[in-house]
Design a protein around this nucleic acid. Structure first.
Lengths: 228, 228
DNA sequence: TCAATAGTGTCTGTTAGACATTATGGA
DNA sequence: TCCATAATGTCTAACAGACACTATTGA
């Protein structure tokens, strides 16, 4: 354990660890994933970030940073990776990227704006572009293992919206009947008594995320994503 | 390696990023995943690691570390994550863990030994235990997306051995006929003209990893691993 | 009534899992 | 010969994808 050696932290590196925590807030606008960028120096854009204090904890740092940026902590977050490529606007040698997901429709805080994840501004440092890329890839790769899609949606949503989010994350269209059949079997959502009418057609029923079944393990080995 | 930084227990690195690169070499022995640990100070065990030089690149550092530890670079490697929990034997504030996979049957280099990933020695620092845990979880979670199983095996292997590795990584038994059917459809292996006889039964044909098909995307959304 | 969208029932080809059978060596 | 293990063929239930159909609103 570490209790004893904690005393060693009495004389840790004197100047802060040259390590930053960079926050990638991901949301959705229409058919795009969007990332929250802040105004940086000299008309550049940058990710919200904080230097890690000497002896500081990554999770604590990202929680504090999240509170600063979006006004509240967001429980669900994942580390997207540590990078040294390029240079960091604050001079960090290493940047640790974290992803949080923000419900679509959330307004950007002052001094910040949403940018499409596929069309990042050129003034974004290469380091930060790499972090965003890793974060988006991370989220996409975990679509079927984390409730990412539901975090991108407001608490009540239509099945059409849910399918749109899945199609956005997975990067391909899905078959409507199959999608709903599988969703129903997974018992992840429950209907509400609310309906939403938009434009012409029949109104869509609103659902909420209410997983009722423990995660089921896949039965067989899958080789689909492997290969040459 | 740790020789130079061993002196750190006396006075921590003053300058430079207080960031270490920790290497998790994973291999297989019988029905267990094993991790390569080195002898540390005062009869402890530790992961091979190196302090990141100021301005140094993570990938360069881990490549150099890999050469030092196993005598050669290993092209396939993945970052398992950055952690600050506990304390690092060399005083790093942040440790970035990397995983490489070593073919089973590889002898441990001098001063190191293989340890079962589920029964790590108590003298391993909490920081390093966390890194190992993240690394093993990382590998297991990517079994079906990375050729991890084949890296755990020698160049020629029987289908029974391959299935054993998959069962070890996935943590459950697999159906033999289904496993082979899916493997055949994926065109990942090709038979050799060699056979191996072990004990009583019919000899098993040896195969080699020779992916012939581009990775195929899964067609439908999967909700199996999601939920309550 | 028409157009547009939501939601569902049915059919079919594919596939996973169970089971049985053949193949081939050692004891 | 018997036994143990490899490898494979067949059957069936489950499922994915296609399609068509009904339902319900606004124009």
């Amino acid at each position: 354990m570490s209790g004893r050696s904690r005393s060693r932290a009495v004389s840790p590196p004197r100047r802060g660890a040259a390590c930053s925590v960079d926050l990638v807030c991901i949301s959705r606008e229409a058919a795009s994933l969007v990332v929250l960028l802040q105004h940086g120096a000299r008309r550049t854009w940058r990710l919200p970030s904080a230097m890690l204090r000497a002896g500081g904890d990554l999770e604590d740092a990202v929680a504090a940073l999240t509170r600063t940026v979006v006004g509240r902590d967001i429980a669900w977050r994942q580390q997207a990776g540590a990078v040294t490529a390029g240079s960091h606007p604050d001079g960090a040698a290493v940047s640790v990227g974290y992803v949080v997901i923000v419900s679509s429709g959330t307004a950007a805080p002052p001094g910040a704006a949403w940018h499409g994840s596929g069309e990042l501004p050129r003034s974004l440092a290469a380091r930060h572009s790499a972090v965003v890329g890793a974060a988006v890839a991370h989220v996409r790769a975990r679509t079927d293992q984390s409730p990412v899609a539901f975090r991108l949606l407001p608490p009540m949503f239509t099945l059409g919206e849910l399918q749109e989010v899945y199609e956005l994350l997975l990067g391909r269209t899905l078959h409507k009947a199959s999608f709903r059949r599988a969703l129903s079997a997974a018992r992840l959502v429950e209907p509400t008594d609310k309906w939403r009418s938009e434009g012409r057609g029949r109104p869509a029923q609103l659902f909420r995320y209410a997983p009722r079944r423990r995660a089921r393990v896949a039965r067989t080995a899958r080789f689909d994503l492997l290969g040459g």
